[in-house]
Amino acid sequence: MSYKILEKKQIAPQVHLMKVLAPDVAKASKAGQFIILRIDETSERIPLTIADFDAEQGYVTIIFQEMGKTTKQLAKMKDEDELQDFAGPLGTPADVRDLGTVILVGGGVGIAPVYPQVKAYREAGNKVISVIGARNKDLLILEDEMRDASDELHVATDDGSKGHHGFVTDVVKQILDSSEDVARIVVIGPPILMKVAAGMTQPYGVETIVSLNPIMIDGTGMCGGCRVSVGGETKFACVDGPEFDAHKVDFNLLMSRLALYRSEESECLQNHECTCKGDN
């Protein structure tokens, strides 16, 4: 099989958006789910959360950051190129219901998977307060889209180049300390952000949901590579998740398992960069 790239554009330094023609996937997609893609015959399978989908036009949007070999190779692809594999939608959809007021938090490239949830929560009747953050203003993605889709949008940057000078968790804390009655907080971003956010919201007793990003291979529950510990129980993030109760997740285990192949990852990237230089 192959899946045509309808559109590919860079939306921030090293961050790219890609619309992929996959009508069956687009038709079945729901907020909170992910896909697994493979570029070509020698590529690995990587999971990416669905950032948007259009059932009528038959495409799924993914947004990714250049991190290692596969995402760098993906970043070089152009409109009309084809991906060899694009399987999905995978995972359990987000549990979107009318709860009242919901805060949706996206950190860095994690803003992308938050976007379909903002739309879904709002459609379900919630008041949606979005909080997005990045290291600096150039790395903020989907700001306009998020503003249009949310009732309120707050921005934070680590260096203060835009919005609140500091972390998204500071902003969330301010909202929780105000009179606002918040029913749920959804946080998607780097594991360290999700860990800090979980610790911050715990004393407030507000339900907090995170979307975990462990290493995956098949994404269909057949290997357990993505296993995480939630409330002391082992769960497979690809089928039981990727969303879990943040207050029950063992983030230290998640982060140590994510670091498992660090040396292999850098070897693979170096190998790739040498080959690329050879091509020029």
């Binding site: 020698t42 590529s43 690995e44 596969t70 498992l260 292999e264 990852e265 693979c268």
Partner: peptide, 10 residues
């Protein structure tokens, strides 16, 4: 066949 194939193993 890593790193000719991208998937690593310990």
């Amino acid at each position: 066949r890593f790193p000719d194939y991208d998937t690593p193993i310990k």
